[in-house]
Simulated scan of single mutants.
Amino acid sequence: MPPDQALDLSLDVSGDTVALLEQLVNIESVSRNEQRIADAVEAVLRPLAHLEVSRHGNTVVARTALDNSSGRGERVVIAGHLDTVPLNDNLPAVHGQQDGREVLRGLGTCDMKGGVAVMLKLAATVPAPNRDLTYLFYESEEIETEYNGLHLLSQSDPDLLAADFAILMEPSDAVIEGGCQGTLRVDVTARGERAHSARSWMGVNAIHRAGEILDRLNAYQARMPVIDGLEYHEGLNAVGITGGVAGNVLPDVCTVSVNYRFAPDRSEAEAAAYVREFFSGFETVVTDSAPGALPGLDRPAAKEFVEAVGGEVNPKFGWTDVARFSALGVPAVNFGPGDPMLAHKQEEYVPVEQVHRCESVLRTWLTAGPSVGPSVGLGG
């Protein structure tokens, strides 16, 4: 029986955000099984007069449409995915302590229902923000791109992703992580000639030839560009190797799988060209690729957000969906409660303080300064 079978799937946005988070966690939503949680989110948002709500599969979009006669005219996307990885005996959610801090444990607490709870609370309780907002509660981030809600929206309704700035509420320890690095995987192949190992001088050992590939990798000097004041650290690493025919045969093929993590000032094409040049003389085939995302910290909305958080910004070395916004020309950052190192782990948890901090920072940023009207809420 699913953990939420006997639970009330309605969501209460009038109380504490951690209580809302617990309700969200207890609605099991493994990838491709997000209908119930999407229904619950939609049920909260649909009656709110300040939001235009639309449903796209199991992705829920809620947008404000402010009178921008004041000249603000700025739109920010706040996005979070509703799905989780498969259960691992970690539902329902439980309250506990970790290193002297109050935490909530359970599947999705960190990745990323903590961020979703903050989003939902703000969407429901900030009816007159100081800039237009688009809240994206999307499906299937944890699996193949073809199911990803942001990807599907970019194909069917790209206007819904249009914005001046985007915040992806992936876990970042409640600190801004700017943009993200791109990732490229290539197969680098050394070729030789088969021969009997007893007469090895009659052939060419492809595995031995692949030693030069590894030598080049060992000599690699990481590029560390500074972008918007953030220092990114690229990486080029062998992640797999295949070769061999039989115990008495010189192999004629040896392939090294290499992963290149490249800074967001390089396009996928530039990254591929760099790797091909690096392995010049060997066959190099791109097997997988995803672009990076520029942080865009020079944009007005980004500058104000950095100031609201406290000025600390770290580069994002992994890949996240901020790259999808960057591909559409929308600068983006990661900012959400939870330690990303706990994502997908059985002991996943989120500190209660970080949930409250993220909500407080965003609420202040969205209500301070010029505004189209009074901001009211249902409680904190």
Rank of each mutant, 00 (worst) to 15 (best):
134 T>K: 05
158 P>D: 08
377 G>W: 12
86 P>I: 13
363 R>C: 02
163 A>E: 13
176 I>P: 02
342 L>N: 09
119 M>R: 11
164 D>M: 04
193 E>C: 09
178 G>L: 07
181 Q>K: 14
142 E>R: 08
263 A>D: 09
97 Q>R: 15
305 F>T: 14
88 N>W: 08
14 S>A: 14
83 D>P: 00
173 D>V: 04
12 D>M: 03
128 A>T: 15
58 N>Y: 13
68 N>P: 10
344 H>S: 01
209 R>L: 10
343 A>R: 02
137 F>E: 05
73 G>M: 04
88 N>A: 15
170 E>R: 09
367 T>D: 06
112 M>S: 10
37 I>F: 05
41 V>M: 01
270 E>A: 14
336 G>V: 10
70 S>G: 15
152 L>T: 07
104 L>T: 13
172 S>I: 06
144 E>Q: 06
375 S>A: 15
252 D>L: 03
121 K>F: 01
260 Y>T: 01
97 Q>N: 13
356 H>I: 15
147 Y>C: 00
66 L>K: 14
317 F>Y: 12
331 P>C: 09
100 G>N: 11
371 S>D: 08
96 G>V: 13
55 R>L: 00
131 R>P: 10
103 V>L: 11
63 R>T: 08
198 A>N: 09
158 P>S: 10
210 A>V: 09
159 D>H: 12
290 A>F: 06
105 R>M: 15
283 E>R: 07
72 R>F: 00
212 E>A: 08
376 V>D: 07
255 T>D: 09
319 W>K: 11
235 G>H: 11
146 E>V: 15
117 A>V: 14
100 G>R: 06
220 Y>S: 01
20 L>D: 10
113 K>R: 14
347 E>W: 13
134 T>V: 10
305 F>H: 08
285 V>W: 00
375 S>N: 13
105 R>H: 15
352 V>G: 06
142 E>K: 05
190 A>K: 07
293 A>C: 12
61 V>T: 11
21 L>M: 15
310 G>Y: 02
199 R>D: 12
10 S>M: 04
66 L>H: 12
212 E>F: 02
296 G>W: 03
63 R>M: 05
183 T>F: 02
220 Y>M: 03
245 V>Y: 02
75 R>D: 09
105 R>Q: 13
155 Q>H: 07
226 V>D: 08
33 N>Q: 15
125 T>P: 06
146 E>F: 03
77 V>T: 14
89 D>Y: 03
172 S>R: 06
119 M>T: 13
40 A>G: 08
15 G>M: 02
249 V>L: 03
258 V>W: 09
304 E>H: 08
287 T>W: 00
315 P>Y: 15
18 V>K: 01
260 Y>R: 08
285 V>A: 05
243 G>R: 07
27 I>P: 02
140 S>A: 14
149 G>M: 04
210 A>D: 13
256 V>L: 03
121 K>A: 10
325 F>I: 09
299 R>L: 04
30 V>E: 11
